[in-house]
C-alpha cells in the first residue's frame, strides 16, 4: 500500500475522525439522553412500541425483499447487458425520486393510490386497501429506499470486470454455475452495501409513509405520534429502538467491508 507522510496521514485521520464523529452526534445524544433504563422502560410503558416494532420489522423485511427482487435483476441488466445509452438514461431516471422530498413523494403517490383513483379502485376491488394498509406501507417504503439500493449496487457491480465471468464460462462451466460460484460472491460486497443502505432507508422511512400509511403504525410514525402526544420523553426512547432495529444489517456490512479491505492490502 502507498504510504503517505506521517503529517498527511495524521491530517487525514483527523478529518476522518471528525467526519465520523459529526455523523455520530445524533446517535450519541440519543443514547445518552434515553439511557439503558429509558430504553428498557419504553418496552413496558409504550403501548405502541411492540406493535410498531412488529410493523416496522415485518413491513421492512417485505419491502427489502421486494427491493432486492426488483433491484437485483435491474442492476444486473444495467451493469452487464444494457446498451450504454440506456444505462445513462436509466441511472438518470432512477435518481428522479431522490430529488423529491419523501413527503412530496408520499403526496404524489397518494394521487396514484388514493381510493378514488383508477389504481385505488382496482386494488379495492381485489380487496386490497390502497392507503392506510400494509400494502401502502410497503409501497411507501419501497419508493423511499429503492433508488438507494439501485445506485449503490450499480456503482459496485459496474466496476466488476466482465472478463472474470467470461473466462469462467470458457472453463466449460455453465452460466448458472458461474453466476453462483463467481458473480454472486464477487458482487456480494456491493450488494450487501446496497441492501444495508436500503434497509436503513426502509426502517427509517417517514415522509411518504406518514401520508400513505399512518396505519398500520410503524416506528417512525409512532415516534411522530409520541412526540405530538407526550413530547420528547415518549419519542426519544422509540427513536432509540428504531436505531437498534436498523443496525444489524449495516453492522454486518461493516464486518464484510473490514474483511474486504484487509484482503486488498
Amino acid at each position: 500500500m502507498f504510504r503517505m507522510s506521517s503529517v498527511s496521514r495524521s491530517a487525514l485521520f483527523g478529518i476522518t475522525v471528525l467526519t465520523i464523529g459529526l455523523g455520530l452526534v445524533p446517535a450519541v445524544v440519543l443514547v445518552s439522553t434515553v439511557g439503558v433504563s429509558g430504553f428498557v422502560r419504553a418496552w413496558h410503558s409504550s403501548y405502541q412500541l411492540s406493535s410498531a416494532l412488529e410493523t416496522t420489522l415485518l413491513s421492512g423485511i417485505i419491502a427489502l425483499a421486494i427491493i432486492v427482487l426488483l433491484g437485483g435483476p435491474t442492476v444486473w441488466y444495467l451493469a452487464r447487458q444494457a446498451p450504454p445509452r440506456l444505462v445513462t438514461w436509466a441511472l438518470g431516471l432512477i435518481l428522479v425520486p431522490l430529488f423529491m422530498p419523501p413527503l412530496v413523494l408520499g403526496l404524489v403517490l397518494a394521487y396514484v393510490l388514493g381510493p378514488d383513483t383508477a389504481v385505488g379502485t382496482i386494488l379495492s376491488a381485489w380487496g386490497v386497501s390502497p392507503t392506510n394498509s400494509w400494502f401502502s406501507l410497503v409501497v411507501a417504503q419501497v419508493y423511499e429506499a429503492l433508488p438507494y439500493f439501485l445506485i449503490t449496487a450499480w456503482a459496485g457491480l459496474s466496476t466488476l470486470s466482465t472478463r472474470v465471468e467470461e473466462s469462467a464460462l470458457s472453463l466449460n462451466r455453465r452460466p448458472r454455475e458461474v453466476f453462483w460460484y463467481v458473480t454472486v460472491p464477487l458482487a456480494a460486497p456491493s450488494l450487501i452495501a446496497a441492501t444495508a443502505m436500503a434497509w436503513s432507508r426502509v426502517v427509517g422511512a417517514f415522509g411518504a409513509v406518514v401520508i400513505l400509511a399512518y396505519h398500520p403504525t410503524g416506528l417512525p410514525v409512532a415516534i411522530w405520534i409520541g412526540l405530538q402526544e407526550l413530547g420528547l420523553a415518549q419519542a426519544l426512547p422509540l427513536a432509540l429502538w428504531l436505531l437498534i432495529v436498523g443496525l444489524p444489517i449495516p453492522l454486518g456490512f461493516a464486518w464484510r467491508g473490514e474483511r474486504h479491505v484487509a484482503l486488498r492490502r
Partner: peptide
Amino acid sequence: WVPQEPTLF
C-alpha cells in the same frame, strides 16, 4: 481462453 486481464476469482 485465458484473457490477458487478471481473471482469477
